[in-house]
């Protein structure tokens, strides 16, 4: 029982990390295009779309890499969870405003509607919560770090 749990924990971790590395890498490769997709959400003033488009892919990449290499799992998972929560709120605002735009989550060619993206983000958020809660059970540090 414990073994299956451990395996599925690590599979979830690799899956979530892989998804974020993939999403981050695609967008990091074409920042101007991603800026256009951020702009389509009509939430930010002109230049700030570029700032978000430049920063967000690298945050996703870094968090994804940490998950993949099994370092700083809790903070990385927390960050991924928070990002997903923000994405969900933003996508809800898109639906509420009736905007017909591409989600842009995995680059310009993915062609995901906001509703599909919402479903996917909910799954990813659930994954993040599961990993966060299971982390202590499957990875115990030999020496507890100093509490502050």
């Amino acid at each position: 029982m414990k073994r299956t749990g451990r395996i599925s924990y690590h599979l979830c971790r690799l899956l979530l990390g892989g998804v974020f590395v993939w999403a981050g890498a695609i967008k990091a490769l074409d920042v101007p295009v991603f800026a256009g997709q951020v702009a389509a959400y009509q939430l930010l003033p002109y230049a700030w779309n570029y700032a978000v488009a430049a920063a967000l892919p690298y945050v996703e990449l870094l968090a994804g890499i940490l998950l993949l290499i099994n370092i700083r799992i809790k903070p990385a998972t927390l960050l991924v969870g928070l990002l997903n929560a923000v994405f969900i709120v933003v996508l809800l605002s898109v639906l509420a405003r009736g905007l017909n735009i591409d989600c842009g989550c995995f680059g310009p060619d993915a062609g995901t509607t906001p509703l599909q993206a919402l479903g996917r983000d909910a799954v990813l958020l659930a994954l993040a919560v599961a990993i966060y809660r299971q982390q202590d059970r499957y990875v115990r540090s030999p020496v507890s770090p100093p509490e502050d």
Partner: peptide
């Protein structure tokens, strides 16, 4: 982590 990622980007 977020700050570091954003700074790199």
């Amino acid at each position: 982590i977020a700050a570091l990622g954003a700074a790199i980007g």
